[in-house]
């Protein structure tokens, strides 16, 4: 247990904690604002990760190391990755247009949000300013945060804990049911797909060229060049072409046309 945590466990705040807070709090707020403001969903996910990691740091300073680890592993690691995974399935190009379609929605949302924030701050200021934090050290009784939480979780909260396990299993089943899809047409065999490609004719007879023939670009988003020197668009995966990979294709084209 670090000295910082010991102090937090006793409730009082220290200079170290203040430094951490004042450094990370603006980062968290900026990340949150960015989450709301950026167009790209991928950027939003990254900014959310920033906020979550900041909160994990706050958990450590508030004598909650177990939660801090869970925050990093479960939230930032698993949940947020799930977000990115779905983003990939939906398509990374699914950026929002920033034009509001519901009349007055944005203005009302900002006004209500500001009002709500003011009310909450007023409530906190009015309700808690007089209290002195006790710290969780007494509750841990020297056993350490994780052991203390485990004891509580498997004694007083054991039924709630078991209920959450049922909830998680149900959620997993639900996700499978929701995403499962019965094929409506018979799946094509490899032979059938090959025959179809041959029948289509054209340049599809040979295998696709591999990417990355330039010495200074060996990434998968760098397109191959055909024997006549032109770019082979089919050499770059579809998903990469649409947005992020475009600049590279254009770079190659520019270089080809160069001096």
């Amino acid at each position: 247990m670090t000295g910082l945590e010991v102090l937090a466990a006793h409730g009082a705040t220290t200079t170290h904690e203040a430094v951490v807070f004042w450094f990370l709090a603006p980062v968290a707020v900026a990340g949150a604002l960015g989450l709301v403001l950026v167009r790209s969903a991928v950027h939003a996910a990254v900014l959310l990760a920033v906020v979550m990691l900041s909160l994990a740091a706050f958990y450590t300073t508030e004598a909650a190391p177990f939660l801090a680890v869970v925050q990093v592993v479960v939230y930032t690691g698993a949940v947020l990755m799930l977000f990115l995974f779905v983003l990939m399935l939906v398509g990374v190009d699914s950026t929002d247009s920033l034009v509001e379609t519901l009349r007055g929605q944005r203005l009302a949302a900002v006004a209500l949000g500001l009002g709500f924030a003011v009310l909450l701050v007023a409530a906190i200021a009015g309700a808690i300013s007089g209290f002195h934090p006790k710290g969780v050290g007494g509750a841990e009784a020297g056993k350490g945060n994780v052991v203390a939480i485990a004891e509580l979780l498997f004694s007083r909260y054991v039924f709630a804990f078991e209920a959450t396990s049922a909830l998680l299993i149900t959620a997993g089943l639900g996700a499978m049911v929701l995403t499962h899809r019965e094929p409506t047409t018979p799946r094509l065999t490899q032979k059938e797909r090959m025959l179809e490609r041959v029948a289509r004719g054209g340049s599809g007879m040979a295998p696709l060229p591999g990417p990355g023939v330039y010495a200074d670009h060996d990434a998968v988003d760098t397109p191959a060049l055909l024997p006549d020197g032109s770019i082979a668009p089919t050499s770059v995966p579809e998903y990469l072409q649409v947005s992020a990979a475009r600049p590279h294709v254009e770079d190659v084209e520019r270089e080809l046309e160069g001096p």
């Binding site: 949150a32 709301v36 500001l114 924030a117």
Partner: peptide, 9 residues
């Protein structure tokens, strides 16, 4: 609050 506004906009 920021999260709530984000949900709305």
């Amino acid at each position: 609050t920021i999260g709530a506004v984000g949900v709305l906009v």
